[in-house]
């Protein structure tokens, strides 16, 4: 199982659909993707994690890095996740307070707060 990444544009948002495992080996690919999107001027990102089977702290670090980058441009980074085992990792690290986490891509795309 490797990491899969695909991006699409929905209005002014860029949705990054992530699948597979985000760990110490694959996280650099996600980091590259987020850096590239921000460098290309995409500052409102939605990371769809519904297809993610595994996430560790390296992945969390990459998401925090992405958030820092978009915030430097007054942008946003929203997550879509309904999987309890993934949500648990955000909870124990206190990152649920840092990331807006949505139930669906539609919900994330519609949010403006």
């Amino acid at each position: 199982m490797d990491l899969s990444l695909s991006t699409r544009t929905v209005g002014d948002r860029t949705v990054v659909e992530v699948g597979g495992e985000i760990d110490v080996y694959t996280a650099p690919k996600l980091r590259e993707q987020l850096v590239e999107l921000v460098n290309d001027g995409n500052y409102h990102l939605v990371v769809d994690m519904e297809g993610v089977d595994f996430l560790d702290s390296t992945g969390l670090g990459v998401l925090v890095g992405g958030l820092k980058r978009v915030r430097a441009h007054e942008g946003s980074l929203r997550l879509v996740c309904n999987q309890e085992r993934i949500l648990k990792i955000f909870r124990i690290t206190g990152l649920t307070k840092v990331f807006p986490i949505h139930n669906s891509v539609d919900d994330a795309v519609a949010s403006t707060d």
Binding site: S57, G61, I92
Partner: peptide, 19 residues
């Protein structure tokens, strides 16, 4: 190298002790 953020190490330990 691989880990560009020194905070990741602390985050990893936080996950372990939290779990």
């Amino acid at each position: 190298g691989a880990s560009a953020d020194p905070g990741e190490d602390a985050l990893g330990l936080a996950v372990i002790t939290g779990l």
